[in-house]
Design a protein around this nucleic acid. Structure first.
Lengths: 312, 312
DNA sequence: TATAGCTGTTGCCGAAACGGCAGCAACATG
DNA sequence: CATGTTGCTGCCGTTTCGGCAACAGCTATA
């Protein structure tokens, strides 16, 4: 089932590893073979595809164009393979997901578990990273489905869905704020605060709001782990901020209380986008999972916004 | 610039010609070479790609899947080539168009002429055919852009735009109806009628309306050429039916009069769709022409519907 | 500054793949 | 029945591919 010329595959490996020798190790061939295929390819195209540095290879402009083409080819080959496989009733393949941390608590594990319950031979690869890295991973063809805070996405990505969740404060059950229905940012800042570091997207959601306030006290704790922030809040160390999506079902251990955040009378939204490479048709098992993901996130969006209706 | 394995190209040629020997002639190689590549391909995929008959080869289900993949690959290769070419400022390539006859009178010649005035090295291939053949030609990768009466289009095609034009009656200047602003079908049927044959889409637009009438006189003339029908109407032989798009600028020779058709007080629309293969990114010069086409058809839609406003 | 470790590239040579030629059997057409 | 078509298959020369070892260029470290 490998009917594409070696040049294509070698080029792809070199682009991913950034080195001919590393690509050769990956492909289990001699580095000279890889080098020659790249040289031949550059001769065919009539222009260098890589810039040679002492520490490896970097794509040129033409190289990036070819990379796009090769990615389209290889990803479409995957789809073809899955088409043929599903013809004989066998659904198998790997769904590769890049997402932000908020999803790991319950959305993804629940979905993957239930999906694997029905389709045992569909495997999953999930990698957690920052929002902009998610988009980059998709562009580089390292993931099939991306879930990230909805930034302005590049034109070669397609936003499959956009779901919005309320941002809220997370406090321990015994916290003075815990009995309120909603809280404002000012009310939270009267207490010790566990703040996200800039590498988390919550930082960029809250920062402009905090900047508007007259007083901006020092955050008691700064962290880049949602898990850590949640556990700290549960121990009463301070007030953390999250979408409910990121903290999972609170009912499991009722140590934590989620309080929707109000800013000037209106909710603070966190927009979650689901992304896919635009120039691509997904294999059917990937498409199927994607649909479930969109449905599930839509369901959660509905449920949570019903549980904490907007204050008018 | 031919860095894809011969199997791919040979398979593509065999699919198009429906014969190994014909493909070999097309490719300037021995038929045995083609035969072997196909056999090798079938071994790789693990399933026959063609059904062998005494008169050639027909695609199997798996073969059709591979055909889709190969088409995606080769069309994306074209796009890559054009990307590289446009990097050095040279816009060249061929835009292939499949369309119905209505476009040949003025829309397409005007557009192509003006486009070539600006981009000399962009060539055009246009083929006129029926609406359903247009969609089929796109699916088979024999055309880049398709223009057809908007039917239900298959999911592997993308409807880029949908423009509606009023259907009208076409009569000679001396015809008794010529001085009216609009006409109804009944009024037309009182005179000799030049009717389209079923292979033209006008037939399918008018047939349901005619069927509703109590009396349905025999058509005086039936034809499958829009040109012929127009010339007959100009000679006063009878009443023909067309969208104004299909008859061009009447001002050139004022022998003909266009009378918008009314049916039960509302206009009769002819929906024109512009189509493109869904799984595909167009080369930039093709995309550029496509945008002009959409804009021009939108402009004509606006102008004509302003010239013959809807009767309320 | 010298050394060790990395990079990509190149000659050489055996192995694998490709392609052309001619001939085969099977089928359709006259 | 003869003729033309189809796809397929040995045989064989040519081309391409890949592995080994050596080379030059660069970087980091001692």
């Amino acid at each position: 089932m490998r009917f594409h010329s070696p040049s294509i595959q070698y080029f792809h490996a070199v682009r991913r590893t950034g080195s001919i020798r590393a690509a050769a190790r990956l492909l289990n061939v001699a580095s000279s073979a890889v080098s020659r295929q790249i040289l031949k390819l550059e001769q065919e195209v009539g222009s260098p595809l890589f810039e040679r540095t002492a520490r490896g290879l970097t794509l040129t402009t033409v190289g990036e164009m070819l990379a796009r083409h090769v990615m389209n080819v290889l990803q479409d080959l995957d789809r073809f393979r899955s088409d043929v496989a599903s013809l004989s009733g066998a659904w198998h393949g790997t769904v590769s997901i890049a997402c932000i941390e908020s999803l790991t608590e319950s959305v993804l594990p629940d979905l993957i578990a239930s999906h694997r319950g029905r389709a045992r031979r569909v495997n999953f690869t999930t990698e957690v990273m920052g929002s902009s890295d998610v988009l980059e991973a998709l562009r580089r063809g390292e993931a099939d489905i991306g879930i990230a805070i909805a930034l302005r996405h590049p034109p070669d990505l397609r936003q499959v869905a956009l779901k919005r969740f309320r941002l809220g404060a997370l406090v321990a059950r015994e916290h003075p704020l815990a009995r309120r229905k909603t809280v404002t940012l000012e009310q939270c800042l009267a207490f010790p605060v566990i703040h996200a570091l800039p590498e988390l997207s919550i930082y960029h959601l809250l920062q402009p709001l905090i900047a508007q306030l007259s007083e901006t006290p020092e955050p008691a704790i700064q962290a880049n782990s949602i898990d850590l922030m949640r556990e700290l809040a549960a121990r009463g160390v301070g007030v953390a901020f999250q979408t409910q999506l990121g903290i999972g079902r609170l009912s499991r251990d009722a140590q934590l209380v989620f309080l929707p955040l109000d800013n000037a009378g209106s909710p603070v939204w966190s927009d979650l986008g689901i992304y896919v490479r635009a120039e691509r048709t997904l294999p059917d098992f990937t498409e199927s999972f994607l649909q479930e993901l969109v449905r599930e996130l839509g369901e959660r969006e509905r449920r949570e916004n019903a549980a904490y209706p907007q204050v008018v």
